[in-house]
Design a protein around this nucleic acid. Structure first.
Lengths: 265, 265
DNA sequence: AAGTGGTCTAGACCACTAT
DNA sequence: TAGTGGTCTAGACCACTTT
């Protein structure tokens, strides 16, 4: 099937796909699209070896670094895999390599006008075993317990609870109170800048209090997004979780060859 | 705070962090770690400008391409943002840029011994409106309806249902039947190789049939992972969904500066 | 030994931003 | 105008795999 004359002609034609040297699109990006096209068309199938980098250099009259870059991008997209000394191969679709982004939340987070944050409670609580464990402090130590309700388009959208380490030197509460945009919420806790955060997504159902606040039925499916924020000394400063009804949030992605325009990178 | 003498000394000391030119670690990777360290230590804070690429070249005695590569990696990690003509800046933690990977499933998918797939049903069904819509066919057209139960360590783990377009020319059913490893399931439908797939994650609760098969309580929280597979002609060939109880699956990620070893890329 | 991908150099030109 | 990031060249050397 691969070795007949018709196929060879197709191959030759495809290889003639040329770079447009006057285009504003960078050459590496054009090369990515050309190779993607050869894979998408079925000309190069999973397991097949791509032309070597030296061959691609000659064929498209570009330097090795440019070819390298194109192949790196395809590799990061999971479309090809490289193997030193052997070659570059078309990958079969890697289902579990699919990545989901929280950008479903982004439009909400960035919509300053449509999003409001209401603080339901902010009080001192002594850490129980669970809280102490998550925040790496001793039980009985003081924390600030905060409950927030986040509205999108005037409707309750997310319910957030968190425990923040209480540090008498830093008046966290006041600055936390001033957070009315959700976006600012994640950039800093109190006046300390955050270094990193661990996030976990779980499936859950709404409990009574949650359902009431979120104006949804009890037992309705929901996402639970748990977080721990760390400061620049690698100490946890905040542990909490967001609850969002399942009918208001979903995560979507595409794995394999996308036909969209290649994004700038 | 930034302009005093102590800080300047710290800055000078940090800048003396040198590349180990005998190390097996590539220079761009070492440079990434050095810059990450300067950010992680709080020396460079969100909003600060990094030294220009030319300066980094001189400081670390490497070529522009090597600096470029290091900064590209930091940029892809979301740790810095670049702006042509202005400079490269330390990013504040981008909560919504968090990406979750299905690799929580990977160990299950790749564990050939511990994972088995049992086919509960495979029958011809005429497409109703919903199925026809998803698969872009006419209502009443034939599809193959397949129900599978995936076991991990001899316990039911995931329940899968899908509709596959029926093509008399391709004996899909037999080859579908032979799929006993979950891994093979996603690489091909019948004998056609897959080009891409769209995936959506939703929160749901177990219905009666699902609960019984998965040996979990009815109404228990669960993830619903819906998929459409496309062939190389961009036509949908399969629409279906996986149901997995919430207590057996979670998605975790880290956003911001990780302290792990820098992975090869 | 020959071919492959992985890293790196020392420049170049360009587009964009700030002054 | 000077400085910045973005792209690109035409080579080089190395580690690895296959023959």
């Amino acid at each position: 099937m691969r070795g007949n004359r018709v196929m060879d002609t197709v191959l030759r034609m495809e290889q003639l796909q040329k770079l447009d040297r006057n285009s504003y699109a960078p050459r590496y990006a054009q090369l990515v699209r050309i190779l993607q096209g050869r894979i998408a068309s079925g000309e190069l199938r999973p397991g097949d070896r791509l032309p070597s980098e030296a061959q691609l250099c000659k064929q498209h009259r570009v330097s090795p670094m440019t070819v390298r870059r194109a192949i790196n991008i395809l590799s990061q997209l999971g479309i090809v895999v490289t193997s030193q000394g052997r070659g570059t191969f078309v990958n079969s679709i890697q289902f579990w390599a699919a990545t989901f982004c929280l950008d479903g939340l982004q439009h909400v987070l960035e919509d300053e006008k449509g999003t409001t944050v209401k603080i339901l409670e902010a009080s001192i609580r002594l850490a129980d075993e669970r809280v102490a464990g998550e925040l790496a402090i001793r039980t009985g130590q003081r924390t600030i317990y905060i409950r927030r309700l986040i509205y999108s388009q005037a409707k309750p959208f997310i319910y957030h609870r968190e425990y923040v380490i209480y540090d008498p030197k830093r008046p966290i509460v006041e600055s936390e109170m001033n957070v009315t945009s959700l976006k600012g919420l994640f950039e800093r806790v109190g006046d300390s800048t955050l270094k990193r955060s661990t996030l976990t997504i779980e499936a859950t159902v709404l409990k009574e209090e949650e359902a009431e606040l979120l104006e949804s039925p009890v037992q309705a499916p929901a996402f639970r997004l748990e977080h721990i924020f760390y400061d620049f000394d690698d100490r946890p400063v905040s542990w909490g979780w967001f609850i969002c009804p399942g009918d208001r949030l979903r995560f979507t992605t595409v794995v394999g060859i996308r036909d969209e325009e290649l994004r700038r990178r």
